[in-house]
Design a protein around this nucleic acid. Sequence first.
DNA 1: ATGATTTGACCGCT
DNA 2: AGCGGTCAAATCAT
Length: 351
Amino acid sequence: MDETTISLILQACKLARDLESNLPNLANQPNLLSNSLDEITKNFVTARERVYGQDPSTSSCLHNMLTLAHQQQIGTSPVQEWLRSNYAQQAMDIIQTQLVADQKEAKIGGCIDDDDAEVKGLQAMEVSDMNVASSSSQRPRRRKDQGLISKITVPAPRIGNTEIPPEDGFTWRKYGQKEIMGSRFPRGYYRCTHQKLYNCPAKKQVQRLDNDPLTFEVMYRGEHTCHMSATAPSIPPPSAEHHNAIQESMARTLATTTTTDPPTASLWLSMDFNPIRGGGGSSSSGMIGSSRGGGGDGIGTSTTTRYGKEVDFPVVDLADAMFNSGSSSTNSMDFIFHSAENKWESEVKKN
DNA sequence: ATGATTTGACCGCT
DNA sequence: AGCGGTCAAATCAT
């Protein structure tokens, strides 16, 4: 095992520990839990892929993940219990489906990766579309097989508005709705709010099940490139103005629990998160899906919200610290992780 | 003013 | 031909 692999495993363990210690605070933050789990599993999966090469067995992947967690003695009851929870399962489903898709693509052999092809194709089309648009009155269209990444069913919240699917940790912008033949309920089409900013191709479709209106079927297509995980945003803030916009966006995001590109689970977990702020109690969690004027079908989405503007939350400093920490060549998240990692490594050395 | 949602139209694909 | 995905103008919310 190389150092990177070890580092990945240690990072995942660290995240799991953070999660465990913050579990009480996160009990009512399923989106954060989901993000956290996602981050943890990503690290484990990546580590495993590095250990066994690019042939991860999907079924054994989860088993190994849990086994590894157990071996690292982080699989104590609260975490295990949480891992059995619905939201954990959702994240698992996504990852599992992803791996299945990856394997299928790998078996095709010699073919370029579908997703890459899609993204590249779209990007290429973007240019040609612009040309077409400028030289023709014909509306540019693009459609291709957008490799299905994940299809999961999500129960409606038992508490509050059962008309909306639970948060999934990303912000989506609805761009269409369609009555589907043979289905009682319309299908909502969503794309990542940051499609333009980060050229993020992620999309999802949400539809209520005919035989169970309290269950949503969510199909995810494309992968988020707007992640702010251990790596920098795909497009760094180019200007001070943009920089401030990002900070404000982050502040809003953090203040409203509508997680726009969650800045990694560890960061979230390290925060004493208290969404109940601002008079009127309108954290965006409560606002999500709340119908704004008639016309809608009631299918909610995690909207990028401006409600957060009204919420005073002292995380601007955090955002500021993140973007200002270190030199411009140093990724702040790397800095954070590196610090945590060093801390963890030093703890290991003690033992 | 800005950005999200709604909704009819357009168009690719089968 | 028609279903389903996307576009984009109109509308709405802040």
